[in-house]
Design a protein around this nucleic acid. Structure first.
Lengths: 154, 154
DNA sequence: TTGCTCCTCACGTCACGTGAGGTGGC
DNA sequence: TTGCTCCTCACGTCACGTGAGGTGGC
């Protein structure tokens, strides 16, 4: 069913390139506590990221780019992702209690719902903007046609 | 047909409140040359804005908020609005030549088209994001149901 | 061993926020 | 005349950009 899971670790440069940001951005998010800094540094102090961490970062970037949220509000809204990532991480390994699983799921639900609401609001606003632009475009075309007709008749 | 046109002049504080920004933002945009600084200052040095100027500023804010564009790229994309505002301003007053009118219209067209393209791209990306969030939500609900069924059976 | 990528400061920048101190119009 | 809004510096902040100088893994 599921493709082979990705257990590789990625270095910060690889992650940055894949997600279209600079390494500075990733380090800055870590400073802010946006990324679960798992202290997963190899000997040289190099940061390492697994598939779950990358997915989480990608989610943060979407909230930033598509909704224009401040990093402060993303901290709140992306808790869901952290919990879910933690859950996914340990789902089979550490075998968390069913209570823990349930708790994480019930915390994540309203946060994902909130994200979906914000996306819908933005979709509505964008539709209105698009309609307005099309109206402007039609107006321009009509005026141009009118001008050309007049100069042709003169 | 058209409601009575608004020939009033507005002070910077009124404009800021109407558009949901601070006066600092408006002054900063003027510094950057984003607003046609018409030098329309009354004796005390107070800035004044007419309906066209307000519409233009609103367009700039939409490009910023909805598309996340930098002010630098907005300068380019919003030229269209400046030209059209200028045109609208003088359409009946100064009676610009037909050549001027045509030129302004033909410059504005591709810029508005470009804005519409950017809006469409963003709409597509947002739709994908929404679909992804709905899938996540369904997953959470299914897992929760599964957990509750199991604990109920135990 | 040689690059290449990583590391930590640390100052610069963009888009404003936020007073300080002063002048001007209803 | 009294507030209220406006003005211009000018420093602060958020979210990074961009080197400087140095260490570490394939």
């Amino acid at each position: 069913m599921e493709a082979q899971r990705d257990f590789r670790s990625y270095r910060i440069g690889e992650v940055a390139e894949r997600l279209g940001v600079t390494t500075r951005t990733i380090r800055y998010y870590e400073e802010l506590g946006l990324l679960e800094s798992r202290g997963d540094r190899r000997k040289g102090g190099h940061r390492l990221y697994d598939a779950a961490a990358i997915a989480h970062l990608q989610q943060v970037l979407k909230l930033r780019d598509l909704l224009g949220l401040s990093l402060e509000s993303i901290v709140v809204l992306a808790e869901a992702e952290v919990s879910r990532a933690a859950l996914r991480d340990t789902w089979e390994n550490d075998d968390p209690s069913e209570c823990d699983r349930l708790r994480i799921l019930e915390e994540a639900h309203p946060l994902i719902t909130r994200q979906l609401e914000l996306v819908h609001d933005r979709q509505v606003t964008l539709s209105r903007f698009a309609r307005e632009l099309r109206r402007t475009l039609r107006q321009i075309e009509q005026r141009r046609a009118a001008l050309q007709a007049r100069s042709g008749a003169a």
